[in-house]
Design a protein around this nucleic acid. Structure first.
Lengths: 240, 240
DNA sequence: TAGTGGTCTAGACCACGAC
DNA sequence: TCGTGGTCTAGACCACTAT
């Protein structure tokens, strides 16, 4: 392998990129056991230590799960993992748990300006727009609008049911893995439709969370705008 | 060094802990150049690779800064670093910048229940309570209440002025380094006093951020409750 | 040119899980 | 007992910085 490329990238980074490519291309499926360090080292032609550094990097990116004595596995977008990785609303007292969902609306639409810029589409491109309300222990927690491009999620509207954990659905049905997401939080007043969906007064302060979720190639996949009641729940953020 | 402790901890973790202790004890001061890998390896009696793993771990914890060709330095709680590490409010359009501060109130008080449990004090213990308003480009952005234990910050009230970046102050004046913090976000309605400080209507939705900041030993140091106007600003959170 | 951290290799041994 | 990942070592060379 070339150690002295023009735009210098360390060997282990090149190996990492090469292995991430196998995930993107679906060569390695979620949950699958991948070859051992020694096999990969032989196959790619670098030392075991370099393979290890690449695998460690992918592990900290939550792409792989390594288990001593068993092997290295492709991470799976399971509820338990998603819960901690992407869901930051936790009850003020008690452990985080996954809210239930009820679909309010699912329909094809044309991308608005915000949707187009978030999802890197042209204005008016076909999208799917899903509106759902999520409840925790029976009480309405949040109402959210999810926008997906039709080009990326063909036939989305034909689904019989939409599961609680849509990231698992994206992976199984369209082979799309969410790698990371960025969120913008604001405080807003409940609109009449928010109030109706959440059973609160119009004008109630809500936590607005605007999320853009990215795939393994850092291309935007999903735009999600949530409005949350935060009376008994908070958004948790760790700094440092 | 003992490789086979009863509760097994890897050697590089033991080395890391030992080096963090030098930071806690003030043996290594912020900004200081620490010994090279080779010197530390000789001194501690482990290989250079093990030292490297310990230093890398501390670098990802933002405790050290390593510069190829120059050496390894103790991280300094500078504005530019704090800005990205601990300040997550950014203008909707434009780059993050540090808001100005104006002290509204600074007085000794007795810890409330919330303060006591957050700071690990007994109820009624003496604390300092600081209230200040912060502005961005001249416009009020947030009002916040900072609580510090008097035991940890003796004579805090005698300060002539309180700088914008209080974490630098904690470090210089009391030798306390903030290592990490956890925040709880909620949407709340502006109280009359919030409204007066921020120049908004009572009931305006505000983003409430409750932060507990911890020192290098993970002991709570500061409780800070901020109420923020989020019309032109949002709280940014990266997931994954 | 000297010294630093960054990368890469090779090999040893340990801890863990499955058989 | 075997194979896996986890740790530790030792040494080589590269890239960057200061002198």
């Amino acid at each position: 392998m070339n150690h002295t490329v023009f735009a210098y990238r360390p060997l282990y980074v090149q190996v990492r990129d090469q292995l991430v490519r196998r995930l993107i291309d679906g060569e390695w499926q979620p949950g699958q056991l991948i070859p051992s360090e020694i096999e990969l080292a032989r196959e790619i032609g670098v030392s075991q230590g370099t393979i290890r550094k690449a695998l460690d990097a992918m592990t900290t990116e939550n792409l792989l799960i390594r288990r001593q004595g068993r092997g290295t596995f492709v991470a799976r977008p399971e509820e338990s993992r998603i819960l901690f990785q992407f869901f930051r609303l936790v009850p003020d007292d008690g452990k985080p748990s996954f809210p239930d969902s009820a679909i309010l609306d699912l329909r094809p639409a044309e991308a608005t300006g915000d949707e187009a810029s978030a999802l890197d589409l042209a204005l008016g491109q076909p999208v799917w727009r899903i509106e759902r309300v999520r409840t925790l222990a029976g009480a309405p927690l949040l109402v959210e609008t999810i926008t997906l491009s039709d080009a990326r999620f063909p036939r989305f509207g034909e689904l019989a049911a939409i599961p609680n954990n849509v990231y698992g659905l994206y992976s199984e049905r369209w082979g799309i893995t969410i790698g990371r997401a960025s969120e913008r939080l604001k405080a807003v007043a409940a609109s009449p439709s928010d109030a109706a969906a959440l059973g609160c007064a119009v004008g109630t302060p809500l936590l607005s969370v605007t999320r853009v979720a990215l795939d393994l190639e850092s291309k935007p996949v999903e735009l999600r705008v949530s409005r949350c009641l935060t009376e008994a729940v908070h958004y948790s953020s760790e700094l440092g």
